[in-house]
């Protein structure tokens, strides 16, 4: 089996996800197969860490939400200030006239996607 370029993995690997993995690392002295389960954390790609309205961490969620991430997204204004979507919507809706960014007082406009 050393001569062949490809090793067929034993059942243990094949069964792991119900898929046949034929991929393998072939070295000069050691043949091995791997399945790598990694760990990462996600974070919002924002300059600040906390929402200027609710003072909660962006990577957490707004006071009205239970789950962070997709369920409680961030939104940027044209002024480049970010807030929890739910927070800024509440803010905007509470303003009688034109809303301003709570951080820089500039007129609030949602930043268009690209």
């Amino acid at each position: 089996m050393i001569t062949s370029g490809i090793l067929y993995l034993s059942n243990w690997f094949s069964l792991a996800n119900g898929i046949n993995y034929k991929c393998l690392v072939i070295g000069s002295s050691l043949n091995l197969a791997i399945r790598w389960h990694a760990v990462a954390s996600w974070t919002w790609d924002a300059h600040d860490e906390t929402c200027g309205i609710c003072r909660m961490a962006f990577d957490g969620c707004c006071p009205d939400c239970k789950l962070p991430g997709d369920d409680c997204p961030l939104i940027w204004g044209v002024c480049n200030h970010a807030f929890h979507l739910h927070c800024i919507l509440k803010w905007v809706n509470s303003q009688t006239s034109q809303a301003h960014c709570p951080m820089c007082r500039r007129e609030w406009q949602f930043k268009g996607s690209e």
Binding site: S10, N31, I34, A38, S41, T43, D70, W76
Partner: peptide
């Protein structure tokens, strides 16, 4: 997929299944 979210790997964490042949 999740923009504007990004991943930060915690490289020493996780689980590796290995088969040495």
């Amino acid at each position: 997929i999740k923009t504007p979210r990004k991943l930060q790997w915690k490289k020493s964490l996780g689980t590796v299944k290995l088969e040495l042949q």
